[in-house]
Every structure is written in structure tokens, then in C-alpha cells.
Design a protein around this nucleic acid. Structure first.
Lengths: 197, 197, 197, 197
DNA sequence: GATGAATGAGGTTTCATTCAT
DNA sequence: GATGAATGAAACCTCATTCAT
């Protein structure tokens, strides 16, 4: 689903679903309301999707695929681990402000997935998390990063950055670039003025 | 509701509700299942709570009250802003591992609150967030903290620490103390070895 | 149940039940609300009555007994059929303003009775209606009343007079006596100025 | 809802609802039974009506509209007040035997209406009652009617005539015309043979 | 492709009633 | 006599899904 170019009915439903699921949660959303928002009547959704669950799954799969692809591309040819991390954070933040609905849903609705779908998405999540762990480990190996627990750190980083889609307002004063820079700075150097806090 | 001492039927329902809401979400949870888990029959829940919504609200109110009280006490007589922050983070982390179900729900189900309840809880959240902003601002004023945007930083901190209740397993290898220390270290100093990353 | 003298808890429940059933109907009334109005807690009602249905039945039986007794006494030693009718209407109207709740319920809730109770009350109703039919027939026999259909007339009369308990306000301008006189006049002479309308 | 011509599922539900509400009262009726009587399964009713309350309201609104329209038309071009009254009573009686279920419900279930609906129907009732009061007043003005209290008389008349829908059996011996004539006669001349009763 | 009607399973809630205290 | 907790049946209503048109 290339949301940039084609805007068929299916795309509209997809996007409205993300928006609706974000607002009311998957269980709290009804297909009737989705239909209304998408400008169709009740059962028409079933011409495009086989079930409510399928819509959710496609949103999450689409989002995870995008995240993995974008971040992978961005760090592919970079040498420095810190440079990689900086790029990754920037792309992550950016994407969480552009497709804020989809990323919010992908983050919040894991528990609403049926078991088969759940496994698929968890696998993608692990893959994505692994990208960060590898960057951190590489940084440690090269002496650029000091860290006790890579798992905690990568989770903390992702949690903190993913949270952006919970509150970011594209019409607010902050540009995406400033936001990304703030997060990079925070994660790299913390808030203390001196080392011995 | 003092969950440590009394364990009436109401307390049991309360706790099972937190556990259930955490697992399946508020909308995805049914009172039938809650009743079964709490060991009562269907309608008996309504002797203790007026509605499903009320249970949710009580969980969130209880959690926010606890968080505000605990953190306030912990920073009350402390001089150094960094010491305050360290204590606050420790209490926050600790509480998110002790009442993990309740804190998870309090974090994730804001959107499931009806408008009146929503306003009350948001007010408490703002209060709680303000505690952190004030610590950060005090730290900046005293030259112990360098920071561009206090709002972003406090949100990032809370998001990152709150995330603990999403994955922490009390039977895993990490002690709460180690966990708290890791988060303090991360937020204070970041991951970079040197300043010029 | 002598409502004039004793006022035990049972009497209070009885009266509040009539008031409640009148306002919300039998099916629309709950024992919890009745309990609250009567100043007791939930299940205490069952110390005085065996079931909700029993309360209803007692209200209706009490009312019909009263009506039959009062009217019978009032016409017992009277010669003239018209005088009898006048007295009966007066008593009927009077009682429908005094025990307005009970009479309203007795009139409106026949359908809420279970089959055994239903039969008993219908028998009393028929008895009561028969009193009026007999007065009318006696009046016809003595040439004081002209009428085509005694059943229709007695029903019309009772319907019209019973309706009082639907709207009569004891604090309004009309006295009970004026009201009764109006109904007697209406039923005796109609509204036409001349005979050939 | 033109019950004479179209007979869609919605119309069927509407009519069965009137019949059911009449038999068991609004509160005493269940949508399950209504569904069964209308030949649909449970929730299907909600494709045609938004709630049980809406069905009740529609029955009452439909009935009051019909009554007002029919009576208004019938008296519109008539000169004599008594002739008007005669026509009005005839139409009223007729309609209460034709749509006996609906008129019964409209009469008996005022108290089951929610506040907004209640106000609307009471307004229509007042309008209808006013038609009768005006006829009576006009008759008094022209010297054709003698009457002390127009309100009492119009209420007594309506109560007495409306009562028909409580017992009229279309398969019984009485034709509608005879019935109407009896009521007109009763209300016009009363039952007394002579004036001085 | 779209729609409106229908379904049936299940959701939250209510309520008469029972019973140990 | 009174109470508060508990029950279970049933109430109204919702909703994902199907299907004939």
C-alpha cells in the first residue's frame, strides 16, 4: 500500500482505520464507524478486507515493514556506530510524526492481534529492536559507547522515541528536525552537566 | 483501597480488573471474565462498583494518587535537584514493577475514560509531570543540568521509565534496584563515551 | 390493613408501593427503590411480603374490598335508584381522591397480576361493576332512567369517574364535593340544553 | 407510517409492538418477544428503530397525530357545536376501535416516556383536549350546552370514550356505529328520564 | 463494487430473590 | 427485624459478519 500515490477506497479505509484505532483502540472501534468515516456503508468494507482483524494486521505489518526498511537503508553504508544511531533515531522520530496514527497503533495494539498475526508482528519487532542492539554493541566494541545493559538501553530508547506519536502535534511549534535532535542529544549525553552526578 | 492490608472481595475484583485490563485492554475485557477471575458470579460485581467504567477510573485514580504521593514524599526534604531526580526515578521504577498492572493500565487506557473522568485523571497526570519539570528546571537554575527543552525531556524520561511496566518480569534476572540505577544512569549521562559525539 | 390507625413498617411499605407503582408502573418499579422510599434496606421487604407480586395483589385487593364495602354501605338502605347512584358516584369519586395511588394502581395494573391473583381481582371488579348495573337496571324498571345498553353505560360511568385519580390534585381549586357533584350532574343530564340535540 | 398501504418489516414491528405493549405494558414487554412476534431475530429490530423507547414514542406520536388530524378534519366545516361534538366523538370512538392497540398504548404509557418525548406527547395531548374544550365553549356561547366546568367535562368525555379501547372486541355484537351513538347520547343527555333528578 | 437487511453471539447492566450474620 | 453480599436469569443493546439485490 503506497499511501503517497494511489488513494483508492481501500487506501482511505486503511488510513481511517489507523486514525480510528488510535483514537478508540481496536476493541473500542466499530466497523460501522470506520465505514462512516471512510464514506461507505456498512458491509462494503468487506470488499476490501476480509475482517476487522485483517485491517489491524495490515496496519501493523505495513508500519513495521516501513520502519525496518527505512532504518536499514539509513544505516546501511554508514561507518560510525554513533552516526548510525543518530540516523536511525532521526528516521524513527520522523516516521512517528508522519504516519503517527499507524505507528501509534502498531505500538499499542499488539495485544489485539490473533495468535498467528501476533507471532508475525513480534518477529518484526524483534528484528527492529535488534537493529538498535547491534548498533549499541558495535558502539561498545569500538569504544564509543559505554553501557551496562544493551537490552534495557535499546528498549528505553525506543520507548522514549515511540512515545512521540502519543503527543506530537504537527501544527505545534516544534519541527520534526528539532525534535529528533533533542532525542539524539538526550540519549547520547543525558542531562547532567558533569560526569559525577 | 489499601492493597497491602485488606483483601476483601472488592479488593480482589479491583486487582483482577487491573490484571485483565492490562492483558486485553479495557474495551477488550468483559465483566463476565472479570467475575470469573475474581471468583464471583456475573452481576455480583455491581455490588462493589457501579459500572465497568468506574472500575477503570478507580484503578487510574488510585495509581496516580500513589505516584504523586510517593514521589512527592521522596523529594520533599532533599536539597540537590539531581538527588531529587534520582529518588523520583527510583520510586517511579519501583512502583511500576510493584503495581505493574495498575500502572500499565493507568498509562494505556486514558482514552477509555469518559469525559468527566478523563479530565480528572489528566489533571493528576499534569500534576505528576510538573513535579519532574520542576526538578529539571531547578537543576538547570543551579547549573547541574543542561537541557534545551524541559517538556520534551520530562516526557521522554517518563515514557522511558513507564515502559518498564510493559515488559518487566519480577521473576527475571534483573532486580528492581539495578533497573532503577540503569535508568538513572541513562538519563543522567547518556550512552556516549565522550562529549563530542 | 387499616391505613388510618396503625403505621407500621409494613404499612409504610404498602403505601410507598402504591405511590411507586402509580408513578412508574409495576414492571417499571424496582424493589430497591421501594425499599429506599420506605426507609429500609434491600431485602428487608421480604420480612413483610413474600414477593413483589404479593404487594401488588394486596394493594388491589385492599382497594377493591374498600370500594365494594363503601359503595354497598352507602346504597344499602336507600330507596330511590337515582339517589343510590348519586351516593355511589360520590363515594367512588371521594375514594379515588383519598387513596388516589391505590385506586390508580388497582385500575391500571390488572395486567400485571399473575393468573390466580388476576382471577380473584377480576371477580371483585365484576362484583363492583354489577352494583352499578343493578342500580341502572332498577332505575330503568322504575322509569327513572332511560338507557339502551346498561353495560356500556356502567363502563362509561366508571371509566369517567376512575379517570379522576389520573389527574386530581388535592391542592388544586376543586373540592372533592364539587367534583362529585359535577360527575353526577354530567352522568344524569348530559351537556345538552334541550332534549332534541 | 401509513399502516393501511405499506407493510414492510418496520410496519410489522410497529404494529406488533403496539399489540405487545398493550398486553404487557411497556416495561413488561421484552424486545425478544417483540422480535419473535414480528418474525425476526433479536437484534434485527435495531435496524428499524434505535431503541425500545423510540418504538413507544413513534406509536404515541403516530396515534396523536392521527387523532388530531382526523378530528380536526371532521369538525372543520361544521357550523353547529353539537354537530361538531357528535362528529368528533364518532371519529374518536371509531379510531379507538380500529387502531385499538395503538390508542390504548398512547393512553396508558405516558409515564413510560423519557422526558423529551414526554413533553412532545403531552403537548399533542393538550392540543387534542383543547379541540374538545373549544367545542364545548362554543356550544355554551351559543346556548346549546349548559356546563359548569369545561375542563372536567372534556376530561370525563375523553376518559369515557378512550376507555373503549380497553374492552372493545371487534368480533362482539356491537357495531362501531352503535357504540359511537351510545356515547354521544350518553354525553348529550345523560341517563335521567326527567330533568329534576 | 456497493448496499441494507438480517443474524447470532455476546456485552453491560438490572433485578427479584435468598441467606448468613 | 434488618442488612449486605451474592446469585442467576434475563433485559436492552451492540457489533462483526453474511448475503440477496
Amino acid at each position: 500500500m503506497n499511501s503517497a500515490t494511489i488513494s483508492t477506497r481501500k487506501t482511505i479505509i486503511f488510513r481511517e482505520a489507523a486514525r480510528l484505532f488510535r483514537t478508540k483502540g481496536y476493541s473500542g472501534s466499530t466497523l460501522r464507524e470506520l465505514a462512516k468515516r471512510a464514506g461507505v456503508k456498512g458491509g462494503s468494507i468487506y470488499h476490501h478486507f476480509n475482517s476487522k482483524q485483517e485491517i489491524l494486521f495490515m496496519i501493523m505489518e505495513y508500519t513495521m515493514t516501513n520502519l525496518i526498511t527505512k532504518v536499514s537503508q539509513e544505516i546501511e553504508d554508514v561507518e560510525s556506530p554513533l552516526e548510525k544511531l543518530r540516523n536511525a533515531i532521526r528516521v524513527h522520530v520522523e516516521y512517528h510524526t508522519v504516519d503517527a496514527d499507524e505507528t501509534y497503533v502498531a505500538d499499542a495494539e499488539l495485544r489485539s492481534l490473533e495468535v498467528t498475526n501476533y507471532k508475525k508482528i513480534v518477529k518484526m519487532r524483534d528484528h527492529y529492536e535488534k537493529l538498535y542492539k547491534e548498533m549499541l554493541e558495535e558502539g561498545i566494541a569500538k569504544g564509543e559507547i559505554r553501557l551496562e545493559n544493551v537490552t534495557i538501553a535499546s528498549r528505553a530508547l525506543l520507548q522514549m522515541c515511540t512515545g512521540i506519536s502519543y503527543w506530537y502535534n504537527p501544527e505545534g511549534p516544534l519541527t520534526i528536525k528539532e525534535l529528533a535532535d533533542s532525542y539524539v542529544d538526550l540519549f547520547f549525553h543525558g542531562v547532567c552537566e558533569k560526569k559525577e552526578a
